[in-house]
């Protein structure tokens, strides 16, 4: 199997620990389920991620240097 994370279209995905998740949710004033989603079987999701976890995605942004977004792992 090819290492997906090496592809230039794939930004860095990292698992966020629970404490940090709460901070993020507080910062944006949203519920966990309001976050954009990502499937657990998505090739770019870290292997240890489970449904309900949150991944941090650091994209090389076209409009700023780096853009940090969060996705909720589902199914």
């Amino acid at each position: 199997m090819v290492d997906v994370s090496q592809h230039k279209l794939v930004p860095e995905h990292t698992l966020v620990d629970e404490e940090a998740v709460d901070e993020v949710l507080q910062e944006y004033n949203v519920e966990r389920t309001n976050l954009p989603k990502i499937k657990r079987k998505d090739p770019a999701v870290p292997d240890e991620a489970e449904s309900g976890d949150v991944v941090r995605i650091v994209r090389d942004s076209r409009t700023t240097d780096q853009a940090v977004v969060y996705r909720l792992v589902i199914e």
């Binding site: 279209l9 794939v10 930004p11 990502i38 770019a44």
Partner: peptide, 14 residues
């Protein structure tokens, strides 16, 4: 195909 092989984030870029 990009989504299937590289995931949603790559699909978004594509």
């Amino acid at each position: 195909e990009i989504h299937r092989n590289l995931g949603v984030e790559a699909a978004r870029e594509a």
